[in-house]
């Protein structure tokens, strides 16, 4: 970890301004991913802007019947929030499927969206990785890739987004709200928030330098059976091989997003028309353009079978 200067921000705009003013600055909230990466010098900010004093830690109803989740709401609190449990159980379920109790106590809503991939080559600074070191190559393409993306990858990167929360938020049509140093705000639909790697895998999201997440909003509740099923090698405290976030209505219609398969939560809205026809029909369309590696091709049947399980559970 390189030496850095440190300040505590007092307003979101000031935080954004501080980050813009200092090259190579980073916001820090929970720190559960950033400090991990800083110890390995995968991230090497020279300045940290501590945003924990900004408030932004409440979950409140919006005028259109939805919820606004403050950027600094901790994962534990969000999962336990009464409104979330009642109206967006998918989000609660996704949150408690992630990490550990200790980490969820610290990790924030915004930080969770920004967590970086768990590709073993991203995590090893001796290895080529276009995401960590643009232009150095992608070791995963010729290496161990069991955990990595089966769809949406590129010749430069086959990393996955490692989170669970964002997968549920994608299914729930969440919107990420930001502010920049000039005070300009923007609302970014979850569908657009995370990028595909393309030839710029170093950019995980569409955020600009200094742009600060203030909240995530959820539209009015959509009801339905909401099930998050995460498949991993051990029973807990592990990243997903595949996860399914599904909302299923009594008539069999619904929505589904997949985690662990791509650089972003993977949802294909057009495929959801097939929901009443079962998992195979949905998966065939969701993963039509899949390009798995030999050691992660199992994720395709796994995704389909996990969705089938979820659909079966929804009928119970």
């Amino acid at each position: 970890m390189r030496a850095f200067s440190y300040e505590r921000a007092t307003t979101p705009e000031a935080a954004a301004a501080a980050a813009v003013a200092t090259p190579n600055a980073k916001f820090i909230a929970g720190g559960t991913n950033l400090l991990d990466l800083m110890k390995l010098e995968i991230e090497a900010p020279t300045h940290l802007v501590d945003v924990n004093g900004l408030g932004l830690d409440t979950v409140e109803p919006t005028d259109d019947g939805g919820l606004r989740i403050g950027a600094l709401v901790r994962n534990t609190d969000l999962a336990a929030d009464a409104q979330v449990r009642r109206d967006y159980p998918l989000l609660s379920r996704a949150l408690v499927a992630g990490a550990s109790g200790q980490l969820r106590n610290k990790a924030t809503t915004a930080g969770n969206l920004l967590q970086r991939t768990r590709c073993p080559y991203f995590y090893d600074t001796n290895m080529p990785c276009n995401k960590r070191n643009p232009g150095s190559g992608c070791a995963a393409l010729t290496g161990v890739s069991r955990q990595l993306a089966v769809i949406g990858g590129s010749d430069a990167c086959i990393a996955t987004h490692p989170g669970d929360m964002a997968v549920a938020m994608r299914a729930l049509d969440a919107v990420v709200e930001t502010v920049d140093a000039e005070g300009a705000t923007r609302a970014i639909p979850m569908a657009e928030f995370h990028r595909l790697p393309g030839d710029e895998p170093e950019r995980d999201t569409v955020l600009n330098t200094g742009e600060f997440i203030t909240a995530v909003t959820l539209p009015a509740p959509v009801g339905g059976r909401q099930i998050y099923h995460k498949v991993r090698d051990r029973a807990s405290y592990a990243f997903a091989l595949v996860s399914v976030a599904a909302i299923i209505h009594p008539d069999g219609t619904g929505r589904v997003a997949f985690g662990g398969v791509a650089h972003k939560p993977w949802r294909v809205e057009e495929a959801e028309a097939e929901m009443p026809n079962g998992a195979r029909a949905v998966a065939a369309r969701v993963f039509a353009d899949a390009a798995p590696r030999p050691d992660n091709a199992f994720k395709l049947p796994l995704a389909e079978r996990t969705l089938a399980l979820v659909l079966a559970e929804a009928k119970e």
Partner: peptide
């Protein structure tokens, strides 16, 4: 999890937290 401590009544991983925070 070996570094687990309680901060303001909640358990956290103290290895992933800066003291100055």
């Amino acid at each position: 999890g070996a570094c687990t401590v309680m901060v303001n009544g909640r358990r956290i991983n103290s290895c992933l937290s800066l003291a100055v925070m």
